[in-house]
Structure formats: C-alpha cells, structure tokens
Design a protein around this nucleic acid. Structure first.
Lengths: 416, 416
DNA sequence: GCATTATTTTCAATGCTCGAAAAAACAATT
DNA sequence: AATTGTTTTTTCGAGCATTGAAAATAATGC
C-alpha cells in the first residue's frame, strides 16, 4: 500500500514537516515568510512554531542589532534549528578510506575522524564491529552530544538489497553480505540507514546548486569508478531507492573489456581511471584491473592528453564514447534536462566532450528534445558529505520531529 | 513544489479517494469490508458512503436473493459504482488504425467505433478536427450518455512533451506537433489526457494480472514497434510520465541498422517485425523500412523459424540479442523483478529466449539479484484498452469525485 | 416470539486548519 | 512625548473530518 488513511494526526505531521523542510532549504525564516513559503495560514504558523519552540526543536534567533536595514513595522523574528536538538553520526565508506563525522541538528560539523582502509581490514574484523568501535570512540570524545545522538547514516558503494539494510555486492572488500547496519542499530539502539554513494552525490550536488532544483538531473561520477544518480524536479529528497542506478556497470560493449566487478564490457571498464590507463598503455582488455590506481598516475595521463599525446587522447575518446553511449541508452528510460560530470574524471571532460555529444546526438530522445545541458564539476567529496548529512537531518525532521505529538496547547480550556 | 498544505479538505479528498480506489480495484464491497480495506473507521465509512450515495457516485447493490450462502447477522449491503455517474470517451490511435470507445463509470463498454487510418489521412484533415468529428458522432449516437461525458483519454505512440499536452514525435504520420488534445478540450470543454501506449500496456497488464501488483515489472511490447513500460510495486497507477520509456529507440549498436525513426542502431530496427524480416531476408540494414508489415508475413516467418529454417532462426536470435542487451542496459537504471513480453512478437519468445537470457546474465545486477522472471503474453489489445480505461476512470475518481465537497450533512445542528 | 450475530448508524469528543480581528513592536511624524 | 502608520504575531470562534463506544438495525436459528 502506498496510500494511507488521512486524519488530524497526518495533517499535523504533514504541515510540521513542511515547516521543517522550508527551514532546511532556506535557513532561518520568520513566521510570516514561513507562512507564505509553506502556504499555511498565519494562525497555523503561530500554533506550529509554538509547538516546535516548546519542544526545543527550533529557537527564535536573537537578531543582531542590524542597523543597516531599518524597516518600519514590528520586526520579524526568524526561527532557526536548535542545533543541540539532535545529532547524527555520518559514515562515508569508500574503497580505501572511511570518514566518520558528527554533525548537529543545524548541520554544523562537530567532530570528524578520518580512517585509512586497508583492503584486508574487513577480513580481519567484522565491519559492524569496526564501525561500532569508531562511533563509540566518537561518543566518548563528545559525551554531551552523544546523549542526543539520534541517527546513524552511512554512505556506501555497491548494490543494496531492496530494504536497504545490507549490501548484496560492493567494490569495498569484504563488506557485502555483512549485516553491519543492523548490528549498529542493535548496539546503539538507533535508526541506521544506508545510502548509495552515487545517489548522495546527485542529491548533494543539488543542495549546493539550487538552480538544479526544478530540473531533472543525471549526475555522473567519473574517477576510480563510474556511477550515476538521478534527481527529479521538485522533490527535495528522493525516498527509498529512488534515483539510484548501476550506471557504471551498464554494458557498453558485449564481451568487452574486463571490469573490476568481474563482468565484461561495463562502462566503468572503459571510463574509470583504471580503464583509461589500460587503454592508454595498450594493456590487454582482459587484464584484471588493479584494486586502485595512484591519483598521480591518472592526473599525469590527463596532462599528457591535454598536451596532445596520441595514445592518451585516444584513451579518453574511448572513455567518452562509453559514457556517451551509456547516457544515450539511459535516456531511453530517464530523460534528464541536465547532465553533470563530477569527480576526478571531470578534469578530463573536455577531452571526452566530443565523443559524449556525438553519442547523445544519435539518440532519438535527443533529436526530439534537444541535447541536455552538460556541465563538469571537479569536487565530489563536498556534495557527497552534504547529501549524506541532508538525508540524515531530513529523516530526523520528517520521521521523528514532524511526527511528535502536540505539547498540549491550551491547558485551561475547561472554563466556558 | 511536490508537497502541499494539508487541511480537512485534503483529508476528505484523500479518504474518499481511498474508498473509490478500493472499489475500483476490488469491485463492489460492503461498508465493513471497505472500512477494513482502507483502514478507515466504521463511523467514517458511514459518513463517506452517505455522501457518495447522496452525490449518486455509488449505489447500494440490490443483492440477488442468493440462497446458497445464508449467513447470520444483518446482511452486508455492497456498494458499487453508479454506472451512469459519468462516461469517458477513449481513443486508441495507432499507426494504421484507430478505435473510439465510450465507457460508463463502472467500466462497461457502451459503444465503439473502429476506424482504419490511411497514412495520408492527417495530411488531409487536422487530427484535432478528425477526432472531434468522431466523438461528435459518438455523442449523437448516445445522446443520454453524452450529457455526462466527463473525460476524453487518448492512447498515442511517440514522445510526449513534458506537460503531456502534445506529441513531439510520433510514428503515426502527421500527428506530432498538432495541438489536438487542446483543441478537443476546447471543443468539448472537457479534460483531455494523452497517454503513451507502451505505458498503458504495462499498467493494463497489471490490472489484468493482480499478482504483478507487488512486483516491479518491465512490460515489453514486440510487434510492429518495440516499446516498454515500467510499473512499480504498490502504486496502483503511476502519475505523470512515470513509467514511460523510449525503449524501442534505445541504441543497440552504434551506427547500426536503420530504424523507422530515422536513427541508426535502435533496438526496434532489429527486433520489430520489419527488423526481423529485414534480417531474415538479408535486406541491407540501411534500407528504409516500409511503413507497415502485413501480419501474415510476420506470422509466416515465425512459423518458418519454429520449423527450424536457418535464416529465420538467425533473425530471431539477432532480435533476441537486441532485446536482451537493451533489457540488460535498462536494468542498470530500473531493476524489475518481472519482465513481460507482450504483443505479436511474444509468439516468437521461445526463439529469442536463449539470447535474451544470455545477455541478461552478463549484467552485474542480474548476477547479484538473480534473473528476473520472464513471461510472454500474446494479446496486447485488451491490456492497452484496460489501461486506458482505468486511467480515465481513476482520474474521474480522484480528480473529480474525491474532490467534491460534502453534500451538507447534518443540516439541523443549530439546536443544542 | 426471542436470543444470537453481523452490519451500520449515531453521538460526543478531539484535533487540526482558517479568516478576521486584535495585539504587539517598532519607525516616522507631529 | 504623544500620535500615527506599518508590519508581524497572536487570539478567538467557527468549521470539518476523524474516532471509539454505544445504540440501532436486520437478518438467522430455535
């Protein structure tokens, strides 16, 4: 069932959620602005903010005695998140590194731990155990915040099962198949959620780039892997597995180059760092890819190609072709208005551009709707973190705080 | 904005919609069953059905004096749609034929007109004009029903614009670019909605096959074209353009066989009737496809292949390969639990099965999640009609009848 | 005719929203 | 210093849809 009975409870949840959502998107707002943004009446706005204040979810901002913009009338009091209302622990797990961050309800970083990840690590210690220890450490280092820790959110790479409770496959060694999310949930008695990295990248990029809010966007990561997330117009944050793809492992050429995943002909096998290097150095396509490539080596190749080196430019042409046909094929199913190329490979975008656009031009959807706008952004770390944090905080907003019952307004109503 | 303010109005709309939806899915139900199906209380059920009865949207069924199943207690009175509450005109436009049906609110066919469509027709007469005349004719032939005609729904082939108001491209000659939906809406002052045929096929198949309700399904049409629609678990009917694809025009082979759409290497160019015939008769891939293929010719080829004819089986292998790799590539974006092959080409499914499954087995998603269940269904006309009808009736349910205000219950409340 | 049983309705309470009017808080003017 | 104007925020009563519990209804079985 997707649709449920609606009653006064769901009305309250919906409208409180609307208010928290508006604050999440726009930052601190006055009641009047909040009313017009959400579409609620001023009367309801008063009632809702009174509740949120009483429950210490938001606070009235002590406005700076800002003399530069004096306006007439009663001054607006802006409401902002009470940063101590909740905390979230955010884990970003990648192939060779991990990072654990503690953020407050307002979205400010409180503490952070960086962890290198040896490929053999999870063969030695159970992932759940390892993560539990790190979070425990973070909690002892921040005892005050630990008390109101409300959620653990984890960014992972690979294929999640339908419930999103564990990985069915992952490029991160020895991680798939272990029930680390559930063991963390048990250990800390907190909700734990897994998110696919490529999808967080897409949603995070949009948070950092509000123009993309009314667009449909395919955000492609190009680097040590190839991944893609989709975002749809209007929706602030997709629910469930919406927007996740296995783009990097879409077939490009039947029986083609060997991919790290073990299959043959994946886009990643041509367009990721190891794929491009393999082509450039004429290593046979069926050679098993190394677990990781030194960033320096990849950068050097880009520089060589930019300088005009034949085998290097050829390799990027092949990569662009793979990405281009992949996008062209994806567009038969999802037709975005914008395509973003993000990650280390974005630096080589101009080297791939012609091949990508040529491939796209061969798609009927593109002939009919025109080419989508294609833009490259270098940095991927910031949007991934932002996406993960926004997911976690939004979950607290909607699933926990919006659902809270009224703090018994109007106690002395008995008289009449 | 996707989310809106919730108030008592939206509560009523939601819950009335829930009731109408339950009746649409399960047929006539008693108030008690309706209450447990929707999750609403018996008290609310009484209120809602009273309104629906007063507004002549549903009627109490005069139960047949069914003596075989005597039960104790007050007998349940089942509620069913009032068939005269509304009527919908349904147009199915295809490349060489069109069909106009008049259905009542209960889903019963009232009248139907079949129309052959010459390829030059819409060059002679504006599509909007042609459709208007046919509907006008249907209305004069059914004057009583014409009075409560509430909606016109049209099944088309091709690419719709983002609002779904017109076709940006269509295999139906001279149809794209004409604002026939809007001119019909003006002429009759009624809502007119366009739906993509491949998507209706997917949704209609699910209405006829309730097992598929909790599954994610890719429904592939194989015949004079190749098309695909997606349905998602739980959702009764997808909204907007959800579930539409251009699967038939997904690229299979760069610079490959010429497709009817003018592009090269589309799946359709290999797997549709003209594609298979072209391969079987070794016609060059770059030969312009005929506008349509006699069904007999296609059937003959299937029979020859079934009999073991080499060039015929080869052609179906090529077709299966195109469909298989298309599905494998689609699964990087949408990963269904079931794949349905529907249409004339479904008869040749066994000839394509090995190639399809081999291609799917090469996808990482399939290695991880297992192969989806693949089933063939011959008939496509019934599910398309059913899908179109259900779309139209569901729109009347939700957008019109669920949104109706209360018929002022409890007039004499002033006393107290 | 009366007990039993399942369905449906009635009733009072609850909780949310909303429009209109009032109150509050400040700037500008007299 | 008091008054007026402006904008924000709160208060108040009305309206509406939901709900649980109790009552009414309509049949069967004995």
């Amino acid at each position: 069932m997707t649709r449920f009975v609606s009653d006064s409870d769901s009305v309250r949840r919906q409208n409180r959620g609307l208010v928290l959502s508006a604050l999440r998107v726009h930052g601190p707002l006055s009641r009047t602005v909040l009313a017009s943004q959400t579409g609620l009446s001023h009367a309801s706005m008063t009632a809702i903010t009174q509740d949120l204040l009483a429950q210490h979810i938001v606070t009235e901002l002590a406005e700076t005695p800002n003399s530069d913009a004096k306006t007439r009338g009663r001054p607006a009091v802006r409401m902002g998140f009470n940063r101590t209302a909740a905390y979230a622990a955010l884990f970003e797990i990648e192939v060779s590194r991990a990072r654990l961050s503690l953020v407050d309800y307002g979205g400010t970083l409180v503490d952070r731990i960086d962890l290198p990840l040896a490929p053999t690590l999870f063969a030695t210690i159970a992932p759940g155990e390892f993560l539990r220890e790190r979070i425990e450490y973070l909690r002892t280092r921040n005892p005050l915040e630990a008390k109101t820790l409300r959620r653990i959110a984890i960014s992972v790479q690979g294929i999640l099962d339908r419930d999103g409770r564990s990985l069915k496959w992952s490029p991160i060694a020895h991680l798939a198949g272990t029930p680390f999310a559930d063991s963390l949930a048990d250990a800390f008695d907190l909700p734990v959620t897994l998110y696919k990295r490529g999808r967080l990248l897409a949603e995070g990029t949009r948070w950092l780039n509000p123009d993309l809010h009314d667009a449909s966007v395919a955000t492609v990561f190009v680097g040590s892997t190839v991944a893609m997330g989709m975002t749809f117009p209007g929706e602030i944050l997709g629910r469930g597995s919406e927007g996740t793809t296995e783009f990097g492992h879409m077939n490009h050429t039947p029986n083609g180059a060997l991919c790290r995943c073990g299959m043959r002909g994946c886009i990643e096998a041509y367009a990721s760092d190891y794929g491009v290097l393999r082509t450039a150095y004429s290593v046979p396509e069926t050679t098993t890819p190394a677990p990781s490539v030194p960033p320096q080596q990849y950068d050097d190749l880009i520089q060589r190609a930019e300088a005009g080196d034949r085998s290097a430019t050829h390799a990027f042409n092949i990569a662009g072709r793979a990405i281009g046909f992949g996008l062209s094929r994806m567009m038969a199913v999802f037709d975005p208005s914008h395509i973003l190329i993000v990650g280390p490979g974005a630096r080589s975008f101009e080297l791939m551009r012609t091949e990508i656009e040529t491939a796209l031009a061969g798609a009927l959807v593109c002939r009919v709707n025109g080419l989508p706008a294609i833009v490259a952004h270098r940095d991927e770390k910031e949007p991934i973190f932002r996406g993960l944090m926004m997911k976690a905080l939004n979950e607290i907003d909607q699933a926990e705080f919006a659902a809270l019952p009224t703090s018994s307004r109007g106690t002395e109503r008995s008289a009449g």
